[in-house]
Nucleic acid binder design. Structure first.
Lengths: 207, 207
DNA sequence: CTAATATTAGAACGAACGTTCGAACTATGG
DNA sequence: CCATAGTTCGAACGTTCGTTCTAATATTAG
């Protein structure tokens, strides 16, 4: 698209502001539980005025989820360029995820918790980004396996790792818990040691 | 309470049936997204008829969550009686959680996903059961640490474990993934190896 | 300053929400 | 078979929902 992306318009800035409020509202009350009137109150804008910026509540959630997810994926790609060793690459993945998660905790809850709230087209697009993100992690896991000569179920490993990380939104308290880098180290330790078998290869306890 | 629990009345049986349908509906559409009319349709009972069995939609969610949670806690207590070694006790915890989770996947999603949907009194009671369950696991972790002479953050360990296990409701497919016992073994392996440090005690890499 | 354009707001739409009421059923014990 | 208690229902209540219409107000360009 030539000659399109030049200046950020007033419209774009205002929309971005509204999205921030919407994240807050969805975080607090959930997508279904939040009403457009809640958002109207939060932004100080009239109910009708909001619809100048997006066409529906569902589209609003879509915009939030897409922007959040695209950002985390893009940051990951950049960071992975600088990492070569398989273990380090997995640690980069964990750190990137947790750093973004904790810096944007509310948006990440809206992304994780309202996973299947979007229907049809909207839902499909977000699901595609999610699948790409999942596969990136799966590939890292397979690299690691090959390099170390390990055998384990990559699917279970990746999904367990996502569980450890995404569950954070249910318990993390900034005043109590460590910051992202320390958390990433701890979870990375647990996970990486966890997927390394004791040394035997291709063996299964008890048959 | 002497002389209370005798026969299961028709009322009790019908209520239990309705709760099953409610689990299905809440699972499918979420607590906020599900309407009493959805439940009416699912049960084949009239909208007004439902209110003969419970006084509000919120109370309905409470009944589901309480029964589900109480059952899983009770089963755990019985199973822990037969386990003595710290490692085995943690494995029992994991197996109990996953077995119940997969046998009652829909109810467990309603429990996990609608964590903060209940207000005030209802919410407080469920939160208390949850806290008890959490502390049981925390104690198991501390037993394990003491027995093995390990040092790690028990809070992070327990919450990571819960994350691994509870996240299942977002991805588990019976036709694709292994059953509870195999899953419990895999996750148990990852977790238990994960929390065992390489042997050094009280050391911290890099400072 | 004026005319065009971008942005906001008041008021209302029909639909769906959780819940209630009184009447009508159905089962049960005398 | 009747009376009583237990169970179900149609119809409606008042409220809130997401969304839209039209008109009014800011902003900007000429």
């Amino acid at each position: 698209m030539p000659g399109v992306a030049h200046t950020e318009t007033r419209f774009d800035r205002r929309l971005a502001e509204i999205l921030e409020y919407a994240i807050e509202v969805f975080y607090e009350r959930g997508y279904e539980g939040a009403s457009m009137r809640d958002l109207s109150r939060a932004t100080g804008m009239s109910l009708a005025g909001l619809y100048y910026y997006f066409e529906s509540k569902e589209r609003l959630l879509y915009l939030i989820q897409k922007h959040t997810f695209k950002t985390i994926v893009q940051r990951l790609k950049e960071r992975l360029k600088d990492a070569n060793q398989p273990e380090q690459r997995i640690r980069v993945f964990i750190l990137n995820h947790l750093e973004y998660f904790l810096s944007n905790q509310k948006a990440m809850k809206v992304l994780s918790h309202e996973d299947d709230a979007l229907k049809n087209g909207f839902g499909a697009e977000i699901a595609a980004i999610k699948r790409e993100y999942y596969h990136t992690c799966l590939d890292l896991m397979d690299e690691f396996k090959a390099a170390k000569g390990l055998e384990f179920n990559s699917r279970i490993a990746v999904l367990s790792l996502f569980g450890m990380m995404n569950w954070i939104y249910t318990w993390y308290k900034p005043r109590v818990d460590a910051d992202a880098s320390e958390l990433a180290r701890d979870m990375g330790d647990i996970f990486l040691r966890g997927i390394c078998t004791g040394g035997q290869r291709g063996t299964r306890r008890k048959v």
